[in-house]
């Protein structure tokens, strides 16, 4: 404990002595990683970044327990690196840049202090350990931010893909079409169902044509969901028409003992639309000329 305190006091004294010089070196590292070819930051921003880092590091070293990685001062440093990682990723930077920046800060910090103080830090295991442990934790914070950002991006892309793969369109007053493309799984079927039912209520739709031309595979669970979707549409008072069922899917539905007796099916989307129009008493005729 006494040794730890001595170490931090020693470091704090070193920081207090040569802050100006260290600041310049830290800025250079920032410029190398963020201002060179990638142009992620401008000079002014790097200066601010370096002085903020130095301010936070000095705050940690002058705190009551600099070794404690649960202290508010250390948390502030974690937030600093998380925020930096988030900013760089949003600007199109790579996580490697931020990690290497953090590592170089650490090396530079040690080297600068070593040079200014005349103390050989390589002989002082406790000082090196102090920096290594703290910076390892800060690099972990950078990776956590990176993973979180990646996860958020993937989730957003997935949602976007879902929305675009199930476009519900009102093709005529009261007639909705739902072309389903790709593989239907349970979660997607539920999403489609939710969107479709809300749309029926909103548009007061009287007929829904669900086109399965783009669906190549269907399993037992999904076929049940499909029937549930048809039933839910009918319960809301709209007619459900399924079109474009592939022979393989028809065969699968039969072998799965799915009862399609209450479901109207038509060969193609065009036939389905004709059926919907016919039920609504709409006649589409070709005008002369």
């Amino acid at each position: 404990m006494v040794q730890k305190k001595d170490t931090s006091e020693k470091l704090n004294a070193l920081f207090g002595l040569k802050v100006g010089n260290i600041s310049t070196q830290l800025e250079e590292i920032g410029r190398e990683f963020f201002c060179s070819s990638n142009k992620l930051m401008d000079e002014e921003e790097v200066t601010d970044l370096s002085s903020e880092f130095l301010h936070l590091m000095t705050g940690l070293l002058s705190s009551a327990e600099p070794q404690r990685r649960t202290s508010p001062q250390f948390h502030a440093l974690e937030v600093f690196f998380s925020g930096l990682a988030q900013r760089m990723l949003m600007r199109g930077g790579h996580v490697e840049d931020v990690v290497r920046y953090a590592q170089n800060l650490q090396y530079s910090l040690i080297a600068a202090l070593e040079a200014d103080s005349g103390i050989t830090f390589t002989q002082s295991r406790s000082v090196l350990m102090f920096f290594a442990q703290h910076f390892d934790e800060l690099i972990m914070a950078i990776f956590r931010t990176y993973l979180l950002e990646r996860e958020n991006t993937l989730q957003a892309q997935e949602e976007e893909l879902r929305e675009t793969s199930t476009p519900i369109a009102e093709i005529w007053d009261g007639v909705l079409t739902l072309p389903i493309i790709g593989t239907l799984d349970s979660s997607r079927t539920m999403l489609v169902m939710e969107a479709l039912l809300n749309r029926i209520a909103r548009d007061r739709a009287r007929a829904v044509v669900m086109d399965l031309t783009g669906v190549k595979n269907i399993d037992s669970q999904v076929s049940h969901h499909l029937i549930q979707m048809v039933r839910a549409v009918q319960l809301m008072g709209a007619d459900a028409i399924i079109t474009g069922i592939h022979p393989e899917i028809a065969r699968a539905l039969v072998s799965l003992n799915i009862d399609l007796s209450g479901v109207t099916t038509r060969a193609s989307l065009s036939d389905g639309l004709k059926e919907a129009f016919s039920r609504m008493g709409i006649h589409v005729t070709q005008t002369a000329g």
């Binding site: 169902m193 939710e194 039912l197 549930q228 839910a232 319960l235």
Partner: peptide
């Protein structure tokens, strides 16, 4: 008449 989407969904689960 006027069955709500949420109600239609729940009924379709046990119908």
């Amino acid at each position: 008449i006027n069955m709500q989407p949420t109600a239609a969904f729940t009924v379709s689960q046990f119908l």
